[in-house]
């Protein structure tokens, strides 16, 4: 069996689990089952779910915030200030949410089955010019920030102006945006760190959720041994991803020094105010919007909180 896998950009920390998965699956099946990973050749990133639904390829990665209406349920993981602190916690909450029947039904509309997450640390912003360290300075800032993070910035008067990750550098370079919110690996991979004068070290407004999904029909057509090889490799792939990302984070301070990027610390009072303005109202609005569509929103949010509590025990 040969599967095509649609991801985008270039190989980076964000795609390491997919690369590892391809290696493991091929090893375990003696080359009977292979994954061909294509970086952008098969689909535009915003349309990876469409491609899965059509059956154009069998596996794909996408981010929930690129198209809220395509995947309303998993946007719970993109709510600002959820309080997820580590990548391990990120994996735990994502797994719990992905296992929820309402979420699976949501993705089933696209003939998609959730395979694994792409855990990412908190999205902090880079910018040029004077550092923006207060909520006041966020006013009218054009920030590339998708999903709930974008909403959080909007709540303090910024204007989310988003392009997909592959276009972020151009947007920053040409002045479409002042600042870009990314996880560390993406600031590196998409070059935004090279344009930056400063990076917020502790803003931690939230993160983006980017699952890897498979086409359900293709998954069902796998032989038992192939399916076992696929499912059985997920955990190890995620472990590899986390190791790799950990190594990247441990070098992050060196990267900042090397690129001459200033680390901006935001005061506790400012952070507290940001949370008050952004966290509760956005969460409540999300819950009422989603409930109106018949999605068990409160239940999903509680699931995240409970899982987080369990992980920390």
């Amino acid at each position: 069996t040969e599967w095509n896998v649609s991801v985008w950009g270039k190989r980076r920390a964000f795609t390491e689990h997919v690369e590892r998965l391809a290696e493991l699956v091929s090893e375990k099946t003696n080359g009977e089952f292979t994954l061909n990973i294509s970086y952008g050749g098969l689909s535009k990133n915003k349309e990876n779910l469409d491609g899965i639904s059509i059956g154009a390829f069998e596996m794909a990665q996408f981010c929930a915030g690129y198209h809220r209406d395509k995947n309303p349920t998993i946007t719970v993981l993109e709510l600002p200030f959820l309080g997820v602190n580590t990548l391990d916690e990120e994996v735990a909450v994502a797994n719990a949410v992905y296992a929820h029947p309402a979420v699976q039904a949501d993705l089933a509309r696209w003939n998609a089955k959730l395979l694994m997450t792409s855990p990412m640390p908190q999205y902090n912003i880079v910018g040029t010019g004077d550092p923006r360290a207060t909520l006041e300075s966020f006013k009218d800032m054009r920030v590339r920030a998708t999903g709930g993070i974008g909403k959080a910035f909007a709540a303090v008067g910024a204007v989310p102006t988003s392009v997909t990750a592959t276009e972020a550098y151009n947007a920053m370079e040409s002045g479409v945006v002042d600042t870009v919110a990314f996880a560390q690996h993406a600031h590196l991979a998409f070059g935004t760190i090279n344009r930056a004068d400063w990076w917020t070290a502790n803003l931690n407004p939230g993160t983006v959720n980017c699952p890897v999904v498979v086409n359900s029909d293709a998954y069902d057509m796998l032989s038992d041994s192939e399916r076992e090889a696929l499912d059985g490799s997920v955990e190890e792939s995620i472990a590899h991803y986390l190791d790799n990302y950990g190594a990247l984070l441990s070098k992050w301070d060196d990267v900042l020094t090397e690129k001459g990027v200033q680390k901006v610390e935001i005061s506790e009072e400012q952070l507290a105010e940001f949370r008050t303005v952004a966290a509760d109202p956005i969460r409540e609005a999300w819950i009422s919007d989603m409930s109106a569509q018949g999605i068990p929103a409160q239940e999903l949010y509680d699931l995240v909180m409970d899982t987080l509590a369990d992980t920390r025990k």
Partner: peptide, 18 residues
């Protein structure tokens, strides 16, 4: 499948800020 893949391209590629 092919018609649907091809049918995506016009809208998808043209809706670009650049």
């Amino acid at each position: 499948v092919s018609v649907k893949v091809a049918g995506q391209v016009p809208h998808s590629k043209v809706s670009s800020q650049a």
